[in-house]
């Protein structure tokens, strides 16, 4: 129970932080922002690594974890690259 409450505590704080971060963002950055925060949700790859690490000899666990690693990596790598591609284009004329 103690652990659960501790975890809820940080979840609540992070939720407020996330909400605060959004209020002040110009519309033209909404797409990159969505894409960039989407890459962050790929953090679940950390869980996937742990799942594979704990799989031992169990093939089913290893396969589930492996798929999760692939999915998570697609999310992370694709997300950051696509965001960077979009942001590269935002520059003032002449400042090339």
């Amino acid at each position: 129970m103690e652990q659960l409450i501790g975890l809820i505590f940080i979840a609540v704080l992070a939720t407020f932080a996330g909400a605060e971060l959004i209020g002040k963002i110009p519309p033209q950055l909404h797409t990159p922002l969505m894409s960039g925060s989407n890459a962050i949700s790929g953090i679940t790859i950390v869980g996937a690594l742990l799942a594979v690490g704990a799989s031992g000899d169990d093939k089913l666990l290893a396969i589930l974890g492996f798929c999760a690693i692939v999915f998570g990596t697609i999310n992370v790598v694709g997300g950051y690259l696509v965001t960077d591609r979009m942001l590269k284009m935002f520059k003032k004329k002449g400042s090339k």
Binding site: T15, G18, A19
Partner: peptide, 8 residues
Amino acid sequence: SGALVGAS
């Protein structure tokens, strides 16, 4: 990270 993304 999940809560950050969820809220934003």
